[in-house]
Design a protein around this nucleic acid. Structure first.
Length: 426
RNA sequence: GGAGAGGUGGCUGAGUGGUCGAAAGCACCGCACUCGAAAUGCGGCGUGCCCUCGCGGGUACCGUGGGUUCGAAUCCCACCCUCUCCGCCA
């Protein structure tokens, strides 16, 4: 959510930011709507002021027992009030129109975000690890996975496309990955482990920015709840409508949760394999901090996510997203992409964004700066640390052997009860 | 799901139709006292929005949304949430 004052004060700057996102200028339109609202609001307030004045006089007259004066004043106010309902309705409609307008505008890119229309303009910043040289043709996990317990067929029979069941060693490996990630993030990386709600109300999803624009990407229950598409929603909303103490910041949360996405706009993309599912697990990282802390928190979050890939010895690269490829609420985003040998490409496995006060405004999440009066909006950040399903795919593909087995990464062996290899089950 | 109680400022908590943005206490800030601190005393201290160059003025806000009234924290309706008891349940 943008501050209307910023648009009033610097319309050109606002439109320039939108242009970097590939959007048409909106400031003139919004400013006009806003001016109209203010004029109506002022007129309404003047009417209310006169009414309040007269009502006080009525109270005073009645206190003195002067019924005649009181009755005369009552008649006067009644006449004065005839125009009020209309003005009130107008004011409300105009205020809502401006709000609705603002709520649908994405965050503006930070100054150091490269400009570009789509992912082709993203900038690779860092590369870690060397893709393994196979002395055989590396296979697609969708091909050799099923014999290791990755069951698409049975899941499709009960749930349809984009669902999978993990069995036996495969389920264990998935759990090991999740546990390892959660332990690491809640340990030395300093994120407080949370087990949050997976079903949330409109306000929460609006707060993080998935609503109102992206309802079609979400699942909704018959009770009107939304299934979270990411724990970013639950973790960030942990501070909604709160006034935090500066000394408590930064606050870091992590959670291992299922995520639910309808993938409405992804028809035909990644239909094979375990890359794009309606339901997947993810270890999420969220930070709530002051504006001054945000850059360091972002760096720390990136480190926290990269650390997982490095511990698993999975080659990856870090990409700074260009203005046109960022999500709705982000002002700056790094993606981590892991090497998938079967496709010979790096695929997104984590997205780490700083949102400035964009989400905080929507959630009304503030803090009280020390030695300053009043409150300020917090900054919010979120990132995957990591997507468990996609990490499983990366492990399977990078650690595959010619005989169809998969070596368990060393760091996971303790989580596997000593199992060092997934072997095909005929 | 049923019955009951309740949601008031950063916190605790008064207030059941008018002069209530709201008593009191705590917390916080300033001043006094003190070598300094504590204790004590005095004063200050909510937020959003609109108008104004500014001083300042106006308006809204007592869970949320409607309604009654000249006037609503206070009365009415709906909803949300919390607590207690009962039922059910992993």
């Amino acid at each position: 959510m943008h501050d209307i004052r910023l648009i009033r004060d610097n319309p050109a700057g606002f439109d320039a930011g939108l242009a970097r996102r590939g959007l048409e200028p909106l400031s003139a339109d919004i400013a006009a709507q806003d001016a109209q609202w203010r004029s109506v609001a002022t007129e309404l307030q003047e009417g209310l002021a006169r009414r309040n004045e007269a009502s006080k006089a009525i109270g005073a007259a009645m206190g003195k027992g002067d019924t005649a004066t009181a009755e005369a004043l009552k008649a006067e106010v009644a006449a004065l009030k005839t125009r009020m309902p209309e003005l009130e309705a107008q004011e409300k409609a105009l205020a809502e129109a401006v709000q609705t307008r603002l709520a649908a505008i994405p965050n503006l890119p930070a100054a150091d975000v490269p400009e570009g229309p789509d992912e082709t303009a993203n900038v690779e910043e860092h590369r870690w690890g060397t893709p393994r040289r196979f002395n055989f043709e590396p296979q697609d996990h969708a091909d050799f996975g099923p014999s290791l317990g990755l069951d698409f067929e049975a899941a499709a029979a009960m749930s349809g496309a984009r669902f999978a069941a993990l069995r036996g060693q495969m389920a264990r490996l998935h759990r090991a990955l999740a546990q390892f990630m959660l332990d690491t993030q809640s340990g030395s990386n300093g994120y407080t482990e949370v087990n949050p709600p997976l079903l949330v109300r409109d306000d929460a999803v609006y707060g993080t920015g998935q609503l109102p624009k992206f309802a079609e990407d979400l699942f909704r229950t018959t009770t009107g709840h939304w299934l979270i598409p990411t724990a970013e929603v639950s973790l960030t909303n942990l501070v909604r409508e709160q006034i935090l103490t500066e000394a408590d910041l930064p606050i870091r949360f992590t959670a291992l949760t299922p995520c639910f996405r309808s993938e409405a706009g992804a028809a035909g993309r990644d239909t094979r394999g375990y890359i794009r599912q309606h339901q997947f697990e993810k270890v999420e990282l969220v930070a709530i901090c002051t504006p001054e802390q945000a850059i360091d928190e972002h760096a720390h979050m990136v480190q926290s996510a990269q650390g997982i890939l490095e511990a698993l010895e999975l080659p990856y690269r870090r990409v700074l997203l260009c203005s046109g490829d960022m999500g709705f609420s982000a002002t700056k985003t790094f993606d981590l992409e892991v090497w998938l040998p079967s496709q010979g490409v790096y695929r997104e496995i984590s997205s780490i964004s700083t949102c400035g006060e964009f989400q905080a405004r929507r959630m009304n999440a503030r803090y009280r700066p020390e030695g300053e009066k009043g409150t300020r909006f917090v900054h919010t950040l979120n990132g995957s640390g990591l997507a468990v399903g996609r990490t499983l795919v990366a492990v399977l593909e990078n650690y595959q052997n010619e005989d169809g087995s998969v070596t368990v990464p060393a760091v996971l062996v303790p989580y596997m009860g000593g199992i060092t290899k997934l072997a095909p089950q005929a």
